[in-house]
């Protein structure tokens, strides 16, 4: 049964059909499937399926956007139905770099992370390096996510490089990792090293497993 439900859900997500995806979830609950199974045997595997497809270059931005939006919506519906409170992998603060006002990538990442039980603190647009670090400390986040749509906002001294500088100055590098993403990184796969990030993701859905790994690295 689970395989059928998962296949129907995955198809709906690939078709960017939100209504159909939500209907599949409701029908699964109606057939006695637990909210936990809906999350971890249907929704999260659908994201993993999309990540695998990305590597074969068969998906598009619209599918990522809808996959994220649907995953976030289903998560909001399912978590209150869990038998016990979910265990979160960890927490990330996320925002766009200074001078960057493009929030789509950040939104896609956030929706997918929510489904993967990673708490997201959204710092919004045009976030300074200092604010990234201060907010990571305030929220006890293990990862800082910096999204940039433009070359100059990715390479700016007050973007990832600025965050690295502050982490070094405050001796926080063992506790906080930096991940970057956005268009410039897709055109230059070595750029994340230039800006001194620990990792990058080529799209919003792919960010989840990488962020989970970074969180594990910094957990005591």
């Amino acid at each position: 049964m689970i395989e059928d439900i998962r296949a129907q859900y995955v198809n709906a997500v690939y078709d960017t059909d939100r209504q159909q995806a939500l209907q599949v979830v409701q029908e699964a609950l109606g057939r006695g499937m637990s909210a936990e199974d809906v999350m971890f045997k249907v929704v999260v595997p659908a994201i993993e399926d999309m990540i695998a497809s990305v590597e074969q270059r068969h998906t598009n931005l619209a599918q990522h956007f809808m996959a994220s939006q649907i995953a976030a919506e289903v998560t909001d519906m399912m978590v209150p139905l869990f038998a016990k409170a979910p265990e979160y992998i960890g927490r990330i603060v996320i925002g766009t770099s200074v001078g960057d006002f493009h929030g789509l990538g950040k939104r896609i990442v956030s929706g997918c992370l929510k489904a993967q039980m990673i708490e997201v603190i959204d710092l919004g647009l045009n976030v300074s390096a200092e604010k990234f670090v201060d907010q990571a400390l305030a929220h006890k986040a293990g990862v800082i996510g910096i999204s940039s749509m433009m070359v100059h906002s990715a390479r700016d001294e007050n973007a990832a490089r600025g965050v690295r500088k502050i982490l070094k100055e405050r001796n926080l590098e063992a506790h906080i990792r930096i991940i970057v993403g956005g268009a410039p990184y897709n055109y230059d796969e070595e750029l994340y090293k230039v800006v001194q990030a620990d990792a990058w993701a080529h799209d919003g859905t792919a960010a989840g497993p990488i962020i989970a790994r970074l969180l594990r690295e910094v957990q005591p």
Partner: peptide
């Protein structure tokens, strides 16, 4: 209107 709102309208 921004990419997010446009994708919302296009898809939904």
């Amino acid at each position: 209107m921004g990419m997010e709102k446009w994708f919302d309208l296009l898809m939904n």
